[in-house]
Design a protein around this nucleic acid. Structure first.
Length: 240
DNA sequence: GCGACAG
DNA sequence: ATCTTGTCGC
């Protein structure tokens, strides 16, 4: 019997949410548990202004080829508001629905937000990784917690992010002269491996492929250009 | 007290 | 995050 992860944070207060994070933080592992990565996923949420409807999606790509293999889209309702430090309570539930809809789970998942670079080391990537018991990495477009020294202006320059006097992530400039992205492990991946894995996900855009494609699909879904459900991509090179 | 604050 | 026109650069 396969146990389904079903949770609802609609009536969870911030005090309760903080208690939940403080309980979960002790179970986060920063030890890499994924040997040969062949598939990597990206998850993201999109929503219309002034509604509680959210469009969640998870895309699965081959690794390190970065070819889109499949994606799962689901629409859901959320009552939990966006509050800095508590993003997981708003976005993880709908992402879990998209996750359960995947026939085969990817080796690792990249989420749009922080991993352990969080006041209680419980960013959305750690929250999702813990609930799915899968390796996860956070790839954020902005900093939330921690500090880092200036990094080079050239492509692929990096600078460690420290929080509580420990290196918990890295700022990574994915394109020359543009603002970096912020990488940190979510669960079951080390800080250094998180960086090396994400470096291989950088192609021609500022945002690494996993979350970039997830964001793209979820937006097409929101405007009605894609339908809910599980989709398999036509792979170039296929004999069929 | 004030400002800052992932998506 | 979303809304939203033009604009600068590779």
């Amino acid at each position: 019997m396969k146990e389904e992860i079903m949770l609802n944070y609609d009536d969870t207060s911030l005090v309760e949410a903080t208690e939940i994070q403080n309980e979960m933080r002790h179970r986060v592992s920063l030890v890499t548990e994924t040997r040969n990565i062949t598939t990597i996923a990206g998850g993201d949420i999109s929503h219309n202004k002034d509604t509680d409807t959210v469009f969640a999606g998870i895309v699965v790509l081959s690794y390190p080829d970065m070819q889109l293999l499949s994606y799962s889209l689901v629409v859901a309702e959320t009552k939990f508001p966006y509050v800095p430090q508590y993003l997981g309570f708003r976005e993880v539930p709908p992402l879990l629905l998209a996750w359960e809809q995947l026939p085969q789970k990817p080796d690792l998942v990249v989420l749009d937000g922080q991993g352990v670079t969080h006041p209680r080391r419980m960013g959305i990537a750690s929250h999702f990784g813990l609930l799915t018991d899968h390796p996860s990495i956070g790839c954020a477009k902005n900093m939330l917690f921690g500090n880092y020294n200036p990094l080079g202006l050239d492509k692929m320059s990096t600078s460690p992010i420290s929080s509580y006097n420990e290196i918990m992530g890295y700022a990574l400039r994915t394109k020359a002269g543009v603002k970096p992205v912020y990488i940190s492990p979510g669960h079951k991946v080390s800080v250094k491996d998180s960086l090396s894995i994400m470096e291989k996900c950088v192609l021609k855009h500022r945002i690494p492929e996993p979350t970039r494609l997830a964001h793209e699909k979820v937006n097409l879904f929101r405007v009605g250009k894609l339908k809910a459900g599980y989709h398999v991509t036509d792979v170039q090179g296929s004999l069929f």
